[in-house]
Amino acid sequence: MNLVKRSIAELIGTFWLVFGGCGSAVLAAAFPYGEGSNPLGIGLVGVSLAFGLTVLTMAYAVGPISGGHFNPAVSFGLWAAKRFPGGELLPYIAAQVVGAIAASTVLFIIASGRVGFEMTGSNPFATNGFGVHSPGGYSLFACLITEVLLTFMFLMVILGATDRRAPQGFAPIAIGLALTLIHLISIPVTNTSVNPARSTGPAIFAGVELFQQVWLFWVAPILGALVAGFFYLNFFDDSTSTKTPEDDALVSEKLA
C-alpha cells in the first residue's frame, strides 16, 4: 500500500478517535445539560470507554492498511522500536494532526448548534491542561509525569500486542482496553492526552491560554513513547532469532 493511501487511513482513524472520544466528552458526558442530576450522561467511565472503542474499531477497520497509529507518539514509539521507517514520520504525523483538526472542527459545528453552548470551565471542549486547566488542579510536574508514564505503558502494550510472537488478531482489543484504562486513571489529572494530535485539535477552538499548554502534550507523550520504543527494542525484542521480511510484516497483520 502506497504512502498516500496509508496516510489517508491515518487521517480517517485519527478523525474517528478525536470525534468519538472528544465528542463523547463534549456532547454526552453530562446530559441533560445544566441540570443538577445526571440520569443520562455517560460521565468519566463512558468517555474512557469511548476513547478505547474508537481505537479498537479503527484498528480493525484501517489498521491493516496503515498500521493503526492514529497518534504521533505511537509513530515515534514504533520508529524507536525499529518497526516504522523514519522517512514516513512526517507524512503520518501530518495526516494525524489534520484528522484531529478536522474532527474538532466538525465537533465544534455540532456543539455550537445547541442553544446556550459556551466554552466555559477549566477544560472547555475536552481540552488537555495542567495547573488551573487540570480538571483536578494538578501541577505541571504531576501532569508531565502522568503523561510520560501512561504513554510509556500504552506503547508497551502496543509493542507487545503487535509482537510477532503474540496471538494474531487480538491486538486491537488489548490496545483499546489499554487506552480505556489510561483514561480512567488520568482524566482527573490532564483530561488525558497521550496523543499530541488529540490535544492539538480541540485546543485550537478553546482559546489562546489553553493552546499555549499544548506543548506539554507533545513533549510528554513523545518522550514516553520514545523511551518505551528503545526499552522494548533492547530488552524484549526477539533479536536472538533470525527475522525475515515476512516476520516484520506481521506487525500490520496483528491488526487484521
Score class of each variant (00 low, 15 high):
167 P>L: 04
196 P>F: 08
172 P>F: 00
221 P>E: 10
220 A>Q: 08
182 I>F: 10
207 G>H: 07
172 P>R: 02
177 L>E: 00
191 N>E: 08
166 A>N: 14
224 G>E: 13
171 A>P: 11
178 A>F: 03
210 L>Q: 11
211 F>T: 10
214 V>W: 12
210 L>R: 14
170 F>G: 00
189 V>F: 01
209 E>M: 03
174 A>I: 00
163 D>G: 13
195 N>E: 07
168 Q>P: 00
224 G>S: 10
211 F>W: 13
211 F>N: 10
175 I>W: 02
172 P>A: 00
206 A>R: 11
216 L>S: 04
185 I>D: 03
173 I>W: 08
221 P>G: 13
199 S>T: 15
189 V>G: 00
221 P>C: 12
169 G>R: 01
190 T>C: 04
195 N>W: 05
184 L>S: 02
179 L>M: 05
207 G>M: 07
165 R>Y: 13
192 T>W: 01
181 L>T: 14
218 W>N: 12
205 F>T: 08
166 A>F: 13
167 P>K: 01
179 L>H: 05
192 T>L: 04
188 P>Y: 02
177 L>W: 04
172 P>V: 10
212 Q>R: 13
200 T>S: 13
190 T>K: 07
196 P>Y: 08
185 I>H: 00
163 D>F: 09
174 A>C: 09
226 L>D: 11
216 L>E: 06
213 Q>L: 09
184 L>R: 04
178 A>T: 08
215 W>R: 08
186 S>R: 04
199 S>V: 12
200 T>I: 15
163 D>A: 14
219 V>N: 06
191 N>D: 11
226 L>A: 14
221 P>L: 08
199 S>K: 09
195 N>Y: 09
204 I>D: 06
215 W>D: 14
168 Q>T: 00
214 V>Q: 14
171 A>R: 01
214 V>I: 14
203 A>F: 05
198 R>D: 11
225 A>W: 11
211 F>H: 14
218 W>F: 15
186 S>Q: 02
181 L>D: 03
170 F>P: 00
163 D>M: 09
188 P>M: 00
220 A>K: 08
192 T>P: 01
